[in-house]
Structures are given as C-alpha cells and as structure tokens.
Design a protein around this nucleic acid. Structure first.
Length: 271
DNA sequence: GAAGACCTGCTA
DNA sequence: TAGCAGGTCTTC
C-alpha cells in the first residue's frame, strides 16, 4: 500500500529515530523469501557488523547505504511497514547498536529486501522520481505523447515516473480533471500541464499528512510509531465511489482500468 | 494488453 | 465464503 508519500514518511521517521549511524548487531529473518538474492543466513552474515550510514528514498524504494559499500534496497510492496517495537507479522528484526531494534512487518509477505553492490542496477530501470527536478513537464509531456496508451496505467508505470500508486494516481487524475481511460497522446498541452502539476501536488500533500491510511484494520499503512497517516481527509476520489464529487457534486463511480480498481468523476473528468 | 502468481486478512 | 486490497513480476 505504501506509495511515494508513505515510503518518504517511513524513511524520514527512521532517520528521526536515529537509525542512521547505528551498527547492525544481528538480524533475524522470519520469512526467508523477503531477502534477495541470498538465503536468510547469508543475508544476516552479509549485513551484520555494517553501519547504516544513510537512509534515502527513490520512488517507492527505500535505500539503506551500508558501511560495507553495499546497499540494502527495501520495497514495501502492498503491506510492508516498519516499527521500533515488536508486533505481529514481524518478518525481519534488525538489532542495532545502542539497544535500538527495527521491526519490519508485512502481513502479505510481498515486500522485498534486496542487498546489492550497485543500486543503479535497479534504479536505472525507473523513470525520474516524481518529486525530483528531473521529472519535468517537458519530459512528462514527451513521454505521454510518444505513447498511445490509457493515461492511468502510464502514470502508474514506474519506468516512466517513479512513485505513484493506485491511490495517488486516482487523486492526480481527479485533481487534473482527466478521465483515467484517456489515451495519452490525445491530451492537450493544458491537460498535460494540469496532470503534471497534480501529480506533484497530491504527492506533496500526502507527505505533509504523513501518508494515507484507509479503513481501521491492522493491515493498513501505519507510520513508524503505529499511527495512521492523516491524508485520508484529503482524498477526493480513491475509495469514494457512490459519494458526491467534491467539485461538481455528481456521483463518483468505480470501474476497472488496466486491472486496477479506479474511482473517478464521470462528469468533471472529461473523456 | 490481459491474466495469473505471490500472500493474508478484512468486508460484504 | 467470495471478493477485494495501497505492487510488481512473469507468461502468454
């Protein structure tokens, strides 16, 4: 469930908890398929004794730069989260110096921890991170115009722009008043600019509100301290089918676009 | 493109 | 109990 704002929130909170600069004293892997490309034992041996020098984020990837020179690249996929306290579904526990411990929980076991020599082998497959200067209107417009595909799956394609997931894609399309099934090379320059700005905007607001949590169950996104994200109040489309559009008051509808549930306003998001 | 795979747990 | 979920990868 974590998209760019949720990963950014978690990365910054781990920094705030003082994880940077701590040494990895021991690692317990409770679900071996999480770690790649090593066995649980090899992985633990490879990282034990290293210091976590720096925590950063690119798209939905979180990067732990280790003093060994290797980089631990973590992808939360659908349900991964971090906590500083023991909980349920803790798939990996990292014991750090100064008595600190990091608990990686992931009910659905989709998340992956990749230990790599060079992060570029993975990052080079991504488009620019949506919140960096490399993601420009010029780049975005050209990328949309040279393809002939529905707009929603294109903005979800991490190889084009990194960071958007299903929530923020629906939110950006709603804000830009662009129908999710519009074909990319038919958007006007004005529509492309609206969508470009909306992508940056919804992600920034998401970060400001420390992420979006839905429902009340425990499978939802959580901040490191266990709190829900507060961005739910800002959500205008995702998960709101049957409710009135906050802009035009018509009823939001849900469909499936490129195998993903998609909520939008059939009146103000123009076909 | 689309469908299935990877998983668990919540909701209808 | 079936269907669905914030993601990505593989295989048609």
């Amino acid at each position: 469930m974590p998209e760019l704002p949720e990963v950014e929130t978690i990365a910054s909170q781990l920094r705030a908890h003082g994880v940077e600069g701590k040494e990895i004293r021991s690692v317990k892997v409770n679900w071996a398929p999480t770690v790649e490309p090593y066995s649980a034992a090899q992985f633990a041996e490879a990282v034990t004794g290293s210091t976590i020098d720096q925590i950063s984020r690119v798209g939905k990837w979180m990067l732990f730069s280790l003093s060994s020179g290797q980089t631990l690249m973590i992808h939360l996929r659908m349900a991964g989260s971090f906590a500083m306290e023991k909980g349920s579904h803790d798939r990996i526990v990292v014991n750090l110096s100064d008595g600190l411990a990091l608990y990686y929980r992931d009910t659905r076991k989709f998340g992956r921890w990749k230990l790599v020599d060079d992060p570029q082998t993975i990052l080079s497959k991504l488009g620019p991170d949506a919140l960096t200067r490399q993601f420009t209107l010029r780049y975005f417009s050209a990328a949309m115009k040279k393809r002939h595909r529905m707009i929603k799956p294109l903005i979800l394609d991490q190889g084009i722009v990194a960071g958007l997931g299903n929530i923020y894609a629906d939110e950006a399309l709603w804000e830009a008043r662009v129908h999710p099934e519009r074909v990319s090379d038919t958007l006007s320059d004005a529509e492309l600019e609206r969508l470009f700005k909306a992508i940056k905007h919804v992600l920034k607001i998401g970060i400001k509100n420390r992420g979006t949590s839905l429902g009340d169950g425990k499978t939802n996104y959580r901040q490191v301290d266990g709190d829900s994200g507060e961005n739910r109040a800002e959500v205008k489309a995702y998960g709101k089918s049957g409710k009135p559009c906050s802009r035009c008051k018509n009823t939001l509808v849900k469909t499936v676009v490129a195998q993903r549930g998609t909520t939008f306003c059939p009146v103000c998001q123009v076909v």
